[in-house]
Write a protein that binds this DNA or RNA. Sequence first.
RNA 1: GCUGGGAUACCCGAGUGGUCAAAGGGGCCGGACUUAAGCUCCGGUGGCAAAGCCUUCGUGGGUUCAAAUCCCACUCCCAGCACCA
Length: 951
Amino acid sequence: MKYDVQETEIRWQKEWAKAKVFETEANSNKPKFYCLEMFPYPSGNMHMGHVRNYSIGDSMARFQRLMGKNVLYPMGYDSFGMPAENAAKKEQGHPHYVTHRNIASIRADQERMGYSYDWRRSLTTSDVEYYRWNQEIFLMLNEKGLVERRYAPVNWCNDCDTVLANEQVKNNRCWRCGLEVIQKDMAQWFLRMTDYSDELLDELDNISFPENVKSMQRNWIGRSQGANIDFTVFNSDSKISVFTTRPDTIFGTTFVTLSPEHHLCEELCKNTEWEKGWRKLHDECSKLSEFERINMLKDKKGVFLGKYAVNPLSKEKIPIYAGNFVVASYGTGAVMAVPGHDQRDFDFAKKYDLPIKQVLSNELNDDNDGDIKSAFEGYGAMINSYTDKFDGLYGEDAKNAIISELENIQSGEGAVQYRLKDWLLSRQRFWGTPIPMIHCKSCGVVPVPKSSLPVMLPLDVIFREDQSGNPLDNHKDFINVNCPICGNKAKRETDTMDTFYDSSWYFMRYCDSNNANSPFDKETVDYWMKGGIDLYIGGIEHAVMHLLYARFFTKIIRDADMISVGEPFGRLVCQGMLNSPTPFCSKCNVDYHIDFFDCNCPTCGELLGQRSAKMSKSLGNTISPGQMVDIYGADTVRLFILFGANPEAGMDWSDSVLEANHRQLKSIIEALSSALLMPKSSSKMDNWIIAKLRKNQEKWKKVMSDVSLREGVMLSHFTMLSDWNWYRRRGGNNYEIAIEFLKTWLPMLSPITPHLAEEFWYRMGQEGYLAKFELPENVIPNNDNIILSYETLLRNVIDSSRNVKGLAERHVDSEITTLTIQTSPKWKYDLAREAITLQSKGFDFRSKGTEYLKSLPIFKNEQIRGEIFQTWTILTIGTKKKRGKIFTWAEDDKNLITNMNNESEFLSSNINFISKELGLDFVTIYSVGEGEDVAGKARLAFPLEPGIAFT
RNA sequence: GCUGGGAUACCCGAGUGGUCAAAGGGGCCGGACUUAAGCUCCGGUGGCAAAGCCUUCGUGGGUUCAAAUCCCACUCCCAGCACCA
């Protein structure tokens, strides 16, 4: 039967859409499965990374439908953001139209892949139907006090008159005009994410994220336990508060270092000889990007500020410095420097010749009272304290003692610091959700009343290349508004929201996408989100930002009583990189554009080799999914991508593997087609194939439930086919069995290659769509394993015969025509069964085995006594290298031995097949002793391992 | 430097104590079919004197009757964080 890939795939895609087979509603009578993929930015066409992401998701969605789950599988577009503005500028248009054009194109690509989304739920964040809820939620957060407006430094380009994102700053210069970027303090909107630091961190222990993601989030939140300690400034009312994780080293403090931006710096050195030095350091630091600053910091610099601080416990007077290595935004922006026990402070002290004091004993290295070469950063017993009561204290005890002393004298307290900062929400850009606030001269900053929402982005804006800044700033209709409180003329806020805000709750909106009255209905979202999203698939690049924002958002939504769960994602799978061959110079360690294949290295001149590198536009090593689908069809591309590697692993693109996968599908199609044309002729293989079918299916269900897709594909697309081929090779040819087989095989094929599965479901004459089919529960009959074991025995005998034949051919001069198989004599079977029974009772063969053997009636047979003894040993004890057979036989082998009536009879019933497989004229099979002992192989015969001789 | 993850045959990749010379795929080799294949099917793919023996799962040690698998040390690779007090 003909199978036209393109025609068939497109036909079924249309059929599925027409019949609305993927549309779902909440249904409390059915277990749910929420399968979600990371929100795509619609940048034009779908790329291979998307294909991988969605092929994983779609196959899991389809699998869970088969398993009887009510599956929510939505798709939508995260469409706000800079790229659309830039594209609009290029074509002198509006981001809205650019966005919608791109969405249409990516959606067409997705549909062509056959992804089973419920398209009714699709949403686009740049549409007012979505972003109006952003605004409503924002107002709610504002009421709850989670919104803050405060000044913060931003990257600013004077030429372009705009704020730059970190990634738009290259070498501290604007990516567009090349002017040096400065840090500018601007009023910004923040969400108080730090209120949730502890919950965000602690909950990580309970969610099933991959370890690397958890570790990244822990790093990012960066909680550290310590103390805030107040140092007073000598002869002044000012205080310097420092944060330290090592209060136990307080007596080793020999100076205090402030970040150059610290508000006290100016106050301390103003109008003194020290001011100039500080200003210089301050200016140097403030114009550096964070990246440069970290690089520059290798060179530690500091200036004395001319004043002294007083250690609250020892009352020592110590100098105050400003240092470029102290980060203003971490802790209090001030450090108590303990050069004896902190390497960084040690280096600084050496450079500026400041005293170094040891206040912890270093047991490992106690004898060096002379020159100290480095700081001792470990824990040690306190020494040299200014009062006896601390000496000898160690580690946590020491820290706690210092903290409580500080609390007693009100000069400090235990404190926790986080690296995590509040979420800077505002962007000085056009293409984002307008922040619903109004600036009124008399009333201040006031929220837009809920009834006046949404604040819509104007569509009558033309973007031009030469434009800079935010067009909203100059849009009179947008900006001019009356104050909702006093009614006087006021201005709208023109900042828009970070797009991570959009993607922090889109998965909740999917549950109730078309709700026109609220973001979503609580009952509905609770049904779908219970226990979190069951499977969330996406790239590792969102490990920190998106996944953390979304977790935070879910918690504030929960605290607003709009949802019941506090963690949005149940299981998270981060798909691996997609690589493809790229020219590479191993000497220079550089990847080159694919144009350089087989060329010499432009740098060192050596011939370039190749290696796998991440698919990227700059290397040109991308593969266009559309092109591949045009050649091979969606099913082949899906099979390649899912079989190529497990979801988490990286994978390499390979044309030859893709073609091989295409051939595999052709073989499957051929097998399916011919199965439908079989006559109704039953054979002894019918039971075998059905038993194998059940076994494969059980295994398949298990591995697929674990998202072990590669293993799943191996079973559904490789093992099942080769089993079916074996069935046919062994004479299986029964239409009724074929139908029974296909009724399970086609569903197994459908998650990965849905079109071909659906097509044959149809050709087979099944009612309804396979896409909606639910696999019935299987009952596995007990004797399945025995049926399979018999066949395994036959295959093993043929395999070893084949090996032995090769040997025989080398040793025998004449042509080989005859195979003689001597199966194990009955007494060996009897002994084997005896041993198996004893083993199941926990018999100790080492101490009592021989004695037991001697008590058996068979042992009286003196002629074969030696062989009996040997057999017993092989069975129960084994040799130096091998354990006894009863320990190495699998359960199935043991069952077979126990149940085997007559091995030679079984093999004889397959004599024609054996001779055909081995290309022989004569095959003789008998039990040892019932015929001539050809080539003395009788002794080798063992249960399941007959003696084999060729002549 | 810290944290997390790795290293398995020509390549990709499964494999958490014995049934492991190690699944599956690619590649390669051989055979069958065919006028002919780059199609399809079957077989082989560490070594050897071959129903066996020897060597091999990053390197070196150890535990065990038994190690790819457990423990220790080291090397290298990937990722994240980083003068974070």
